[in-house]
Amino acid sequence: MSIDASASPRPDRTEPGRTGSHLRKPKDHVGSRYPLWFYVPGGLVYLVFFIIPTAASFYFAFTRWTLFESEFIGFDNFVTFFNEPGLIGSLWNTLVYGFVTSGSKVVLGMALAVVLSLPVIARGYLRSVTFFPVLLSTVGVGLTFQVLLDPFNGIVNKAWTALSGMDGPGWLTNPDFALLSVAAIDVWKGLGIATLIYIAGIAAIPNEYFEAARVDGASGWQTFRSIILPLSFPATSTVILLSLIGGLRSFDLIWTTTGGGPGFSSDVIASVIYKQYQAGFYGLSTAGNVILFIVVTAIVYPLNRWLNSKETDL
């Protein structure tokens, strides 16, 4: 038996009295663009507080300037800055400080977040205590630890002597310990932010993964390695970038604890810039800021691209 093709419904036919508009696919507004005026407020803020100051900094880096006048001198500021005797040491200290603080916050922040995500007693209180140092003034923290780590009267060395029977080291006065001691203070103060980001990352993992791990009899380490560690990678990349940028441009904590000393052992690029500014070499210090901007960008930008590529592979 044959079927009359004319008897089958046609997709382009409509019933009498109705238009074919109801068969059209609704317009997708997800990819629609906002009107131009919607971008104007944010664009003005970005222009005034970022683009203009950045362009002005690049210009004044090529001048000898005061508050009242400026003289274009070309690359002389950059040549002078690169001839600074302690520049190579300060650049090395900057890299060490940035990577040590960043790596420590990633490891310790993850560890604390895992513990504080468990149903432990007083979990909310422990989370608050972990975040509390973030709220403190950086200058206040630096001055406080300068007293606590005093080699003769500081409470840390007194406890060290009482427990070991030996004199404690000069945490901030010994060139071998100064930079790492300040880095440890930085980690203590900024660890709360890293922990908070990791807690949010762990909370975003669907509970079905953990239930499946329990059903399969996975140990705590296996659950961490196979579920928490890979699925919280976006939080890891955020902590790495934020802490690395903060470490590379750190100044206030270093200056209030050691002043870049003893000698130049804890000098970083930011403290060298500040010393030039103190001496009245404003153009030279501006050139240093431009160099620091380029160094941070050269490290963070490719790292950010690499981390984003890893996130897309997950």
Rank of each mutant, 00 (worst) to 15 (best):
I202Q: 12
P175D: 09
G154C: 07
S128Q: 05
Y125R: 05
I202N: 12
L143V: 12
L149V: 09
Q146A: 08
G154D: 11
S137I: 08
T161S: 13
V141E: 01
R123Q: 07
L180M: 05
Y125K: 05
G190C: 05
W160E: 04
P206E: 10
P175T: 09
S164R: 12
S181V: 03
T138H: 03
M166Q: 14
A184E: 01
D186G: 10
A184N: 05
I199K: 08
Y209Q: 12
L126P: 00
Q146N: 15
N157R: 02
A204P: 06
L172H: 05
K189C: 06
G124F: 02
Y198F: 15
V147L: 08
V129L: 15
L126D: 02
L148H: 03
I121C: 11
L179G: 04
T138C: 03
A203T: 08
A122P: 05
R127E: 00
Y209S: 11
A194Y: 13
D186Y: 12
L180I: 03
I185G: 02
I202Y: 12
G165H: 09
V147Q: 10
W160T: 07
E208L: 13
I199A: 11
G165C: 06
G124S: 08
A183L: 09
G140D: 11
V156N: 00
G192E: 03
I202T: 14
L136V: 15
V120G: 10
V134S: 04
V129E: 13
F132E: 12
P133W: 07
G154F: 05
I205G: 11
S181K: 03
P133N: 15
G142A: 08
N207R: 13
R127Y: 00
F152W: 09
L196M: 14
L163A: 13
S164D: 13
A204W: 06
L148W: 02
